[in-house]
């Protein structure tokens, strides 16, 4: 009995720990679809940078991110990494701000596992790098 309780408590603790720290990975379309239910959860948003949309802000950069179907604005705090440029496939981590603006504080540049990066095409759905 005590053992069962113990295992149960440990399991619950683990699940709670997991739940609180799961970062979902969404394409722009998926993210737009779940916009209303997402609240302010952190997640990772994958897409490609829309050419001509990058502008410097006081605290970082603003740009548009697309997956070919939907487009959202990303407000990023901090300077983007060196390889950040138009058409680059990126993953931004952060949460929804107002409307369809995504507030990001971390940009990961996706690159293929083979180090010659894939030709950047604006893909309808992005899979994990």
């Amino acid at each position: 009995m005590a053992a069962v309780l113990c295992v149960g408590a440990i399991g619950a603790l683990l699940l709670l720990g997991l739940r609180g720290n799961i970062v979902y990975f969404r394409t722009v379309s998926e993210a737009v679809k779940t916009r209303t239910t997402e609240g302010t959860h952190r997640f990772r948003l994958a897409g490609a940078v829309v050419p001509g949309s990058i502008s410097q802000t006081s605290g970082g950069v603003r740009f548009e991110l697309t997956d070919g179907k939907k487009t959202v604005t990303v407000d990023h705090a901090g300077d983007p990494p060196d390889l950040f440029k138009a058409r680059a496939p990126v993953v931004c981590e952060g949460r929804w701000g107002s409307g369809l603006t995504f507030v990001s504080d971390r940009i990961l540049i996706k690159h293929g596992s083979e180090y010659t990066p894939p030709k950047v095409k604006i893909r309808p759905s992005a899979s994990g790098a």
Binding site: I22, Y24, R26, S127
Partner: peptide, 14 residues
């Protein structure tokens, strides 16, 4: 079918 990652805080906290 959901893609997700487990954040570092999980590992740190546990």
């Amino acid at each position: 079918g959901q893609q997700l990652s487990v954040g570092e805080p999980y590992f740190d906290a546990m």
